[in-house]
Amino acid sequence: MIAAVDSALGSQTHTHTLPASHFPFYSYSKPLAEILLAIAARNGANGQYRR
């Protein structure tokens, strides 16, 4: 489904994984926050990390 969206819009979805259930808020709250923080550190449409 992600591929279909990317194809339709002509832009890429960056994917990440967690070994978590549908609610990663409990057992994986810290790894989830780490991914969100890494995403926030990216800058611009091409997703490079901010210096």
Binding site: G10, S11, H16, P19
Partner: peptide, 22 residues
Amino acid sequence: RITAERFGRVPRHYIRCLEDGR
């Protein structure tokens, strides 16, 4: 109702939860 010109230019990320019971 999304377009490549608006929605499509916001960098997007997807976090897959591998043990998602859904």
